[in-house]
Computed example of a mutant assay.
Amino acid sequence: MNNLTEHYNQLYKTSAETISAGKYSIDLELKNESDSRFGITLLIRPNEEIKANIQHFIKELKKVEPEQYFYPDSDIHVTVMSIISCSTAFTLDQISPKEYIEIICRSLVDVEKIKIHYKGVTASPSALMIQGFPSDETLNNLRNKLRENFKKSGLQQSMDSRYSIFTAHSTIMRFQEQLQNPKKLIETAEKFRDYDFGEFEVKNLELVYNDWYQRKETTRVLGDFGLR
């Protein structure tokens, strides 16, 4: 947990400085209609109460930077594991979803409760995120089980190819235009830096075929896994 706090703090500090100095990055793919980067992700969605709290924050951000890209409720998620990273080379017909579902079911056998506490805000040079803190090691143990089982299976996967996932954040805003007032944006984020968005118990996990931004209209749910 402390490592995670440290990681989020460091990320926020460097990114807030970068953004305030006007050295942020714009995600040029957001408006690209022919963006065909797709992949497969196992994810968690927060409950309604938390989404409402997040929208309260988004409302404040929209006052400062209305032209940016904000995640609607339907797209807010925590990535458990990016099983096949989004790329233009991947299409759903390359795999049999059933085989992936079987491995996930096997990995979930001993999983007890997963709880995530959303508290505070962090940033990257091109986005703002809500900080998520799992209440114990259950989520990381599940990730390790998935890594192990998928590697053994020989199925197509690209887990941890970009970085080894250990956070539980949710991206809620991306920069798609030049920022009107970078300093004001960071001031607004600062107000929510330690805001308590709430805690929820994960009721189910979804396996989805998704685009880079997890947009609902392009997402296909391949499997839904209830937790006891």
Rank of each mutant, 00 (worst) to 15 (best):
S15E: 05
R143G: 10
T91V: 13
C86I: 06
R106W: 04
M81S: 12
S126M: 03
K98V: 14
N2H: 03
F166T: 03
K184I: 00
A89R: 04
Y209M: 12
A16C: 03
N2F: 01
K183A: 14
E137Q: 07
K63Q: 15
Q214F: 09
N53Y: 00
K191V: 05
E148W: 01
S124A: 14
Q55A: 14
L179C: 10
D35F: 08
K23F: 10
F175R: 07
S161L: 04
P125V: 07
S135M: 04
E187M: 11
V121I: 15
A189P: 00
K59N: 15
R220A: 15
K98I: 10
D194H: 12
S85L: 05
N47L: 06
G223S: 12
E17V: 11
L142H: 06
T88V: 04
Y213I: 04
S107C: 13
A127E: 08
G120L: 00
F70L: 13
S107G: 15
G198Y: 04
I50E: 10
S124K: 03
G22K: 03
R143A: 12
L139Q: 01
N149E: 14
R143F: 04
T171S: 14
M159L: 08
C86V: 06
S36Y: 01
E206L: 15
L42M: 06
F133D: 00
D224V: 15
K63Y: 02
H56K: 11
S161G: 01
Q156K: 11
G223C: 11
K151G: 02
N181L: 01
K13A: 00
M129P: 00
Q180G: 11
E206Y: 11
G39M: 09
E67M: 14
N47M: 09
P182Q: 03
D160H: 14
P66N: 13
V64W: 00
Q178H: 04
Q180F: 01
N140R: 08
I44Y: 10
E187Q: 14
R215W: 04
T79F: 08
L205R: 07
S20L: 08
A189Y: 00
F166D: 05
P97H: 08
N3H: 07
I19L: 10
P46K: 12
G132L: 02
S161F: 03
S82Q: 07
L142K: 08
G226M: 09
E148Y: 05
K145T: 10
V64A: 13
N204L: 07
S158A: 05
S34P: 02
F200M: 07
L139G: 03
E17D: 15
I116E: 07
A21Y: 05
F38S: 08
C105R: 03
K31W: 01
Q157V: 14
